[in-house]
Design a protein around this nucleic acid. Structure first.
Lengths: 249, 249
DNA sequence: TCAGTTATCGACGACCAGTCGATAACCAGA
DNA sequence: TCTGGTTATCGACTGGTCGTCGATAACTGA
């Protein structure tokens, strides 16, 4: 317990220069925008044109405007890469402020997770591209770590919320849904189990329609939709475990 | 998708003045420090001396130093209120940057949850005090909301992690432990159930000791400790439900 | 009509938590 | 030392939920 001055006001006043040289600190927002494309989870990356790390892929984002809220700012920045209306979900991940996380002046970053539903195919500018999350190029700064945080958040929330609604088209079959879950979770998802879990939690309901069979035949699939298009947390937890390894003997 | 410039570099350069008047933005850290004292959850508050909101209770914290990491900063700021060594756990909650969240210039705040184990009784300065979380005075700025976020985080993490270790003394009886959980969760906690859940998750182990009975008699209680003094996430979830209301009929 | 394919359903079993009654181990006072 | 009161611990029952799998349904194309 250090006996220092006890009244450091957190309101306007001279900047605290006790713990480093006084210099302007910038605040930026970064977005991990994920979408399942062709059964593979992708992240939207942007190719840096300027130094430092020119040519490297990085997360979309930019400096917080002086009169902007954080969420407002990331929406604006993402609007340059993806149509905002395509974003089915957006939530804050965390903030990072290590003094040397970017070269030059210190930049505090607040990161967001954004989701784009699978049926959307937003036009992205030329310097921007979807990358499979399991085969990322070398990313700028600490952005690889941020992508990891986004994937991890998505994975856990798929288990105990209805976040699936943000991944899929408005209507879908159970097989399709399972493929979306597989892409995000990284392991097999049993269709029977998924159907029962989501139904028991009242997250999905049948539309009444059935799909025509494909050319390879098979029973036509019933069409479902999510009941609520916004995030809800489940009371009864369950982790959507990966399939158990059969215990030999 | 707005056809704007696509290369807004998130690195050094002139500040973005497109979305508000250019003015320096400050970054602060705030801590929700919780402790169970006499079976009641308390939060550490600090009485503001200066305007705005002079006289109101507020969360400890302050301006981020130019060369400080966020976590480093909140530890430093809390050292003025509570001995850092008493903090058994510290994790980031979220960041808030609404332009008018504090009067005057815009301040982005990154908030942290801190826990102090129940046996500690750190010396706190005169303008600082423990307040029962269920009977808080009017707080400054958005600090009441931040306290809510901290309580909520603690509640959910008690269910699916071993965070209990950060609440209790190094050793404890099951009855004591249940009282700590009760204080944080806000509902009854069955001792038998708690014991079985934590044991099956390998979070606790008996020390072998037993406590002498009090003057009112009773069987001596076995003494336990947490196995691991750092945060671990449980695989098998379970929410430590409040007791079910007996369904009449 | 039949084989192949895909979807759906029902049932079984394991696991785990919520509950409760039985038992253990102590105290104090008669 | 007996007895009732008190607290802690344990075992057992139960219900719910999931992981699994085999049976059945509903289609296709040959």
């Amino acid at each position: 317990m250090s006996p220092v001055s006890l009244s450091r006001p957190p309101e306007p006043g001279p900047p605290d220069v006790t713990h480093g040289t006084a210099q302007p600190s910038r605040h930026e927002v970064l977005g991990v925008v994920l979408q399942v494309r062709d059964d593979v989870l992708h992240v939207l990356l942007w190719r840096r044109a300027l130094a430092p790390h020119a040519g490297r892929w990085s997360l979309p984002g930019g400096t917080l405007g002086p009169a902007e809220d954080l969420r407002e700012s990331i929406r604006r920045q993402l609007a340059e890469k993806v149509d905002v209306r395509e974003l089915s979900h957006l939530e804050q991940l965390d903030s990072r402020g290590a003094p040397r996380r970017v070269p030059g002046e210190r930049v505090v970053a607040t990161t967001y997770l954004g989701l784009v539903p699978g049926h959307a195919d937003p036009h992205v500018p030329a310097d921007t591209r979807w990358h499979p999350v399991d085969a990322l190029p070398r990313l700028a700064f600490d952005h690889a770590d941020v992508v990891g945080a986004g994937r991890s958040r998505l994975r856990s929330k798929l288990s105990y919320t209805n976040l699936g609604f943000a991944l899929v088209p408005p209507t879908f079959t159970m097989s399709e849904l399972a493929r979306y879950y597989r892409a995000c979770l990284g392991h097999e998802v049993d269709v029977t189990n998924l159907q029962r879990i989501l139904a028991r939690r009242d997250q999905i309901e049948p539309t009444g329609d059935v799909l025509r069979s494909g050319r390879s035949g098979g029973r036509p699939a019933a069409v479902y939709r999510f009941r609520h298009p916004s995030l809800e947390v489940t009371d009864a937890f369950a982790v959507l475990h990966p399939p158990r390894i059969a215990t030999p003997g």
